[in-house]
Amino acid sequence: MEVRTIKVFTTVDNINLHTQVVDMSMTYGQQFGPTYLDGADVTKIKPHNSHEGKTFYVLPNDDTLRVEAFEYYHTTDPSFLGRYMSALNHTKKWKYPQVNGLTSIKWADNNCYLATALLTLQQIELKFNPPALQDAYYRARAGEAANFCALILAYCNKTVGELGDVRETMSYLFQHANLDSCKRVLNVVCKTCGQQQTTLKGVEAVMYMGTLSYEQFKKGVQIPCTCGKQATKYLVQQESPFVMMSAPPAQYELKHGTFTCASEYTGNYQCGHYKHITSKETLYCIDGALLTKSSEYKGPITDVFYKENSYTTTIK
């Protein structure tokens, strides 16, 4: 009895394709271990004539594949690729409408935090270190965002349907971005203890939790000093293409032309909904596939993004 075979390709990165001759009487799992086709788990399936010449994702289970996976995804987590594939199996079914010149995501599976993050990423200057993220990001900007969303979920250790947080998501993504040249110098002034300067680099240099107003941050924000008295913390120097200011959701007025974009969060910790506000020729609110415009805006804002380049204080 002759062994019926077909020729397929296996890959971990969709760049390096490895030619395989597979036995049609055995499952993919018996031949390769966990195997995925377009995100779908085909591990328990036997090869079919229609699979001839198709590319299958496999887990990096030998040295060659491990090197290829690390170079593309910059992670050695053995569960990463499987999590990416199972997320992709959902995100490829989502709709990605162009809204006001940006790629958004039609609401499904509690994905409003991903839509808000995706919209924000198209408006701030950011370059990702893992080629996987950078490639998928370019495709997302062009309207094909399924891979990018699935990668975000995998890097953030999230599953489809789980509630997510924009600030946490951005923080994970910033860790995989090139923020080497970003720098922030802060000064804390206390009447009792004097003053202390701190220099922050990388992710810490672009994120701040405690106030939404970048102007206020430049002037000074009140913080408790270690001595128990009130101290003032203010920005001395900022070198970065953008800054992200966050605070627990509270009524906040966004003035046209003073910011790049913002995240609105309605609801409580267990259950809520994100919308995205962007400042173009007027203010726009993007909620999944829905767009509304207004000249002014007041609502429960939790993150505001500002364009920056270089700032030095005039406070002496």
Rank of each mutant, 00 (worst) to 15 (best):
P130F: 02
T278Q: 14
K158F: 04
V166K: 03
H90Q: 13
L179N: 01
T266G: 07
P97I: 14
V304R: 00
P78G: 07
V221P: 02
T312S: 10
Y297R: 00
I277W: 09
T313G: 14
Y113T: 01
D287C: 00
C261N: 00
L235G: 00
H276F: 08
A136N: 11
T5K: 08
D165F: 05
T211Y: 05
Y73K: 03
K293T: 13
C225M: 01
P131H: 03
T11I: 06
P241F: 04
S25A: 12
V58W: 06
Y274P: 00
L65N: 14
A142L: 11
E264F: 01
Y234R: 12
T91F: 02
S171W: 15
L163E: 07
L173E: 00
H276D: 02
E125D: 14
F128T: 02
E253G: 05
M170H: 03
G143P: 03
Y96W: 04
Q175A: 14
E125P: 13
G228F: 04
C271W: 14
C190N: 00
V67P: 09
N100H: 12
L212I: 09
L179A: 04
I223T: 14
D303P: 00
G299I: 00
N187V: 14
Q222W: 08
S240L: 01
C193G: 02
Y57C: 12
K44V: 14
G299M: 01
N187C: 12
T313I: 11
M26S: 11
V203P: 15
Q134M: 11
C227S: 00
L153A: 04
E52R: 12
P47M: 05
P249C: 01
N309V: 11
Y297D: 00
Q216L: 10
G299S: 03
I45W: 15
Q98H: 08
Q175G: 12
L102V: 05
T199Y: 08
T260G: 01
K316P: 09
V67G: 10
I124L: 11
S213I: 01
L254C: 01
S213D: 12
G267L: 04
Q20H: 14
A262P: 00
Y269M: 10
K218W: 06
K46Q: 15
R184K: 03
G161I: 03
L59N: 15
A145H: 03
E71V: 09
M170Y: 03
Q197T: 11
I6V: 10
A289I: 07
A117M: 08
K233T: 09
Q31Y: 13
V243T: 03
Y72M: 15
Q30A: 14
G33Y: 04
Q122K: 02
S171K: 09
N89P: 10
V12W: 07
V8N: 05
T302L: 00
Y274F: 06
K46E: 13
Y113S: 03
C193E: 03
Q251C: 09
Y36P: 03
V304Q: 00
P300R: 07
E281P: 02
K92Q: 08
Q216Y: 06
D23K: 10
P224F: 09
I6C: 15
S25L: 12
A247K: 04
T266D: 12
S294N: 12
S50G: 13
N61R: 10
C261H: 00
W107F: 06
V22Y: 05
T75E: 15
H18D: 08
K201H: 13
K219P: 02
D63M: 14
I105M: 03
Y269Q: 08
T19A: 15
Y113A: 03
Y208A: 09
D180C: 07
S86C: 13
D180L: 07
K218E: 04
Y57K: 05
D23L: 13
G267R: 04
F80K: 03
V236T: 07
H48Q: 09
T76C: 13
M209W: 09
L59D: 07
V243R: 00
Y113L: 04
Q237W: 10
T199H: 10
G210R: 00
I286F: 07
I45C: 15
Y306H: 00
A154Q: 03
T116D: 05
V12N: 13
S310P: 09
G220F: 01
F56N: 04
D287S: 02
C193D: 01
L200V: 14
A145K: 01
K158G: 03
S25W: 14
S240T: 04
M170I: 07
K233C: 12
N268M: 08
